[in-house]
Design a protein around this nucleic acid. Structure first.
Lengths: 178, 178
DNA sequence: AAGCACATGTAACGCGTTACATGATTTT
DNA sequence: AAAATCATGTAACGCGTTACATGTGCTT
């Protein structure tokens, strides 16, 4: 059981999903390709943490819809109670910045601006998601509490936005010093 | 030539270092163990991007001190001019938050507090590093410019601190909603 | 004498990405 | 007819971590 396996179980607590849907839902939180997810689902089923039913579709190809079992829910709760691994950040930009003096100010600015554009694009995406989440919710997001199924997604979006805004600020600050 | 290889070259632009020192210097920017670094250095030397001299030490074991070659500097400049890869974030906490409703508020608070402690510890470390950098610099950090060797490390520390403060803020905000 | 920091390497393993493979159904 | 989306899988490869392996010199 690796972290991604627990991640898949986490997503399944919300609602049953196919491997394909699971892949799409986990993307914003944990990058994973279908080639990694399908074998893990088979493994989770072998361990009795999930089970699937074949669902026939007329408009689209058939799919396997996975649900979390009570055994899977128990495994999840145990996992949450264990110490959380430290976050992993790997960013090529940081290495470039370390020796940014090798190039002229013009090029340095371009490098930072490329990243700033990425951050702004991501922030726009998160704000869009936040709007959609607000529309899905029957009560205002600010009033959501721990038990509400939208509480997790809401605080995750808020975290992403705080991160992105801090980084956009940094990009502008760096450019002002070049 | 992978990203870490360019990272090693980046660190060597500042001053020549042994594999062991290189490992220590790159740690805060890009996690890498010595088992990964030593083979890469041998490979970089084969490609003519670095060269080493055997340095005898009396107080400590001997070491191989690597320097970047002009060919290596050229490779670095080419790399900087290429599009920068998107940052990679992998954080077990985000997956736990997604299904945090499975546990009670007390436990949820503990999970967030464990991470908050980590962020605060890291922030303290960065502030310490910033102080040391300020003492190393002959001019105030705010006046550093692109050409200055301490400019890169300075703006990197500033980025790390902005990130950490945003995350600490988020932790406090989440706790207030539990 | 034991433990720790310095110093350099190799080997095995796990995870994540890319590529290979196949096929249904809808849209253009 | 071609391209795009949905859907599921396997195989090969690269990178990063853990473990194995060895040795010097200082400190306690």
């Amino acid at each position: 059981m690796n972290t991604l396996s627990y991640g898949l179980l986490s997503i399944l607590t919300r609602s049953s999903k196919s491997g394909y849907e699971l892949m799409q839902h986990i993307q914003p939180i944990w990058k994973a390709k279908h080639s990694q997810i399908y074998p893990l689902l088979a493994q989770l089923e072998q361990n009795g943490f999930v089970q699937h039913v074949h669902v026939h579709q007329t408009d689209k190809p058939d799919k396997k819809v996975y649900s979390i079992t009570s055994s899977g829910q128990e495994a999840l709760r145990t996992w949450i109670h264990q110490p959380t691994g430290e976050p992993v950040h790997r960013d090529e930009l940081l290495l470039k910045i370390y020796c940014i003096g090798m190039v002229d100010a013009e090029k340095a600015k371009q490098v930072v601006e490329e990243r700033e554009a990425y951050y702004r694009k991501m922030a726009e995406f998160c704000e869009e998601r936040m709007k959609i989440t607000a529309e899905e919710s029957v009560i205002p997001l600010q009033e959501l509490t721990l038990g509400d199924p939208l509480f997790g997604p809401y605080v995750l979006l808020e975290k992403a936005l705080l991160d992105l805004r801090a980084n956009i600020e940094w990009c502008e600050w760096v450019k002002s010093r070049l």
